[in-house]
Design a protein around this nucleic acid. Structure first.
Length: 551
RNA sequence: ACCCUUGUAGCUCAGAGGAUAGAGCAGCAGUUUCCUAAACUGUUGGUCGGCAGUUCGAGUCUGCCCAAGGGUACCA
């Protein structure tokens, strides 16, 4: 819709002799009486045109030259809005085209030839995924799906570290539990991982080795076993939510020198050093962020000689640039919010174009059960597990609930609502609309020999009642909604949109008889239903939820 | 102490500086000889956390204050 009309608005501005870099905003008015779409350009351009908005708008409306049969009325309203009213026939014709476009409806090639990387989940293998992690995982997956609709070649990446101090603690934790299995009485340190899964890993080792490892000082076996078991559990959990990755990037590779070249970490140090942003004192190596106005420098290499997480993080992002990505999206939780600016500053100093990086930060999740709020905590062992949530409410509800609120708001996951089988539950409401259409199409095939394979949208202009036009009109918004989701890295808008489509379909279904209508009208209504089904499917695919054919 | 996010109807939340602030749920009143009532229709409900400012115009931008969550490691 926006893409269709934008050129005509630009042409009108040109005719008026207005040259401007101002972005033209086309919006859908909340009130129907203000037309099908409107623009506020007269406000935005009033100052530079040295006219008042109403006057400028009045001048502009004479200059629009839309194609025959599209816009029926253009008017100036309020303090200077320009409102456009669409020809219902145009709306119906356009909606009918959804059938021909099928899965491609909503897609375009804006990102063709461009490489994008979306990094998400990136949890270290120190324990099973928690509910909080799930939100970022689903968000990242949806964002990757969104970019794919624009023709980007998307790489989905998981960045992890299996070296480092946390893994050491993990190995020790397993060893303590293992010694308990062997019958030793030990005091389990409060600093270590408390979760039940540690005991289970220890049990696996005990079953396999008996007490043969009790005097083993080397932690390698404990670490490897734990990592193997935990990683496969993480992957299994992600798989249940249809979250996939093309690549698991091991942080450790940044520590290794290759082909005679220094390691990625070392290259970052050298490059920052050359720009005089490296300081060496207190036995450590520092990124001199005080030079950028920050209060303290940041440690890159600890006095122990090991890099802090910040250094490989920078080196990791360097690899993204070296791998030639045109767009890099990082998805992470609010607990990492302070880490990112340092990485960005370092990359800027190293001469990389950080405008290619976009960051999506999601706030935390609390779950409520029976009105009681349960806070999700990490690392304590009492953290709620994502797997348990999926067991409880299913994969579709888990996914949808994670993204049906904006990522910036703290999510209140109502477990009971997610299980409800009624319109209160958005998952059900959306899927029911889809199932209802499938059922209708099955019935039509049986009763009146309707063949969906040969159906076309050509008859849609026969339909002219309000529920039909409203429904068709909402279908045309789909590409704009995708654009909006991408602009804000916010799939929540898609959920809201699909809810509107479903709602209008239910209303249409209620008010317009389909199988009992005259043949031409019947087929047109069936075709419209197929268009709705297609939009729902395309939307569901972006959100990663299933499209059940019956319920 | 500082930094980030949030604060909008009883509840959960939308609101890209613009029109009379919107949905959904709950509440209240209705709809089934008819394709899925797992649905639909109508309706009640607001000091947009508070105060000041910028603007022709502020829920939206700025400052201060209040409240909730998160972060401020030679942990990741």
């Amino acid at each position: 819709m926006r893409a269709y009309f934008l050129p005509y608005i630009e042409a009108a501005l040109q005719k008026a002799g207005i040259e401007t870099g101002t972005e033209i905003q086309i919006e859908k008015p909340t009130d129907k009486k203000f037309g099908d779409f409107s623009t506020n350009i007269a406000f935005l351009l009033a100052k530079e045109a040295r006219k008042n908005p109403r006057e400028l708008a009045g001048q502009l409306i004479g200059l629009f030259a839309f194609p025959e049969g599209t816009v029926t009325k253009t008017e100036v309203a309020g303090p200077g809005f320009i409102n456009f009213h669409l020809d219902p026939g145009f709306v119906m014709r356009s909606a009918g085209a959804v059938l021909e476009e099928g899965e491609a409806f909503g897609c375009n090639e804006a990102g063709k030839g461009q490489k994008a990387i979306v990094e998400y989940v990136s949890a270290n293998p120190t324990g099973p995924l928690t509910v909080g992690r799930g939100r970022g995982g689903v968000l990242g997956d949806c964002i990757a799906n969104l970019f794919e609709t624009q023709g980007y070649a998307v790489t989905r990446e998981y960045y992890f570290n299996d070296a480092g101090r946390q893994m050491q603690i993990l190995a020790e934790s397993v060893r303590y539990r293992y010694l308990e299995q062997c019958g030793q009485v030990i005091e389990f340190p409060t600093t270590h991982y408390q979760g039940d899964y540690i005991g289970e890993i220890a049990e696996t080792l005990f079953i396999e080795h008996g007490d043969g490892l009790a005097s083993l000082d080397d932690l390698a076996l404990f670490k490897e076993t734990a990592e193997g078991i935990i990683f496969s559990s993480i992957r299994r959990t992600l798989e249940r939510l249809s979250i996939t990755h093309d690549k698991f990037f091991n942080e450790h590779t940044l520590y290794q020198s290759r082909e005679g070249k220094p390691s990625g970490n070392q290259q970052v140090i050298d490059a920052l050093d050359a720009k005089e942003f490296i300081g060496r004192y207190d036995n450590a190596t520092w990124f001199m962020t005080t030079k950028l106005g920050q209060e303290k420098d940041k440690v890159l290499i600890k006095s122990s000689g090991d890099p802090s997480y910040r250094l490989p993080d920078i080196a990791y992002h360097v690899t993204k640039f070296e791998r030639g990505f045109d767009l890099m999206v990082n998805v992470f939780g609010a607990d990492h919010i302070d880490e990112y600016p340092d990485v960005q500053e370092a990359l800027k100093i190293l001469g990389y174009d950080t405008s290619k990086i976009r960051v999506a930060i999601n706030q935390f999740v609390t779950t409520t059960v029976g009105g009681q709020t349960v806070k999700m905590s990490t690392r304590k062992g009492n953290a709620d597990l994502l797997d348990d949530l999926i067991d409880d409410v299913g994969a579709d509800a888990t996914r949808l609930f994670f993204i049906m609120r904006s990522k910036d708001s703290h999510l209140n996951f109502d477990v009971e609502l997610a299980k409800k089988q009624s319109k209160d539950n958005p998952v059900f409401y959306l899927q029911y609309a889809h199932a209802r259409i499938c059922s209708l199409v099955r019935m039509a095939a049986k009763e009146v020999g309707f063949d969906e394979a040969t159906a076309t949208g050509e008859g849609l202009p026969l339909l002219s009642s309000e529920p039909e036009i409203e429904l068709a009109s909402s279908l045309l918004d789909f590409p704009d909604v995708i654009a909006s989701c991408l602009r804000f890295l916010e799939p929540q808008k898609m959920v809201e949109y699909l809810h509107t489509v479903a709602e209008r379909y239910h209303k249409f279904y209620q008010e317009c008889p389909i199988l009992k209508a005259d043949e031409n009208v019947r087929d047109a209504r069936l075709a419209l239903s197929l268009c709705v089904r297609q939009v729902l499917r395309n939307g569901f695919r972006i959100l990663g939820i299933s499209a059940p054919e019956s319920m």
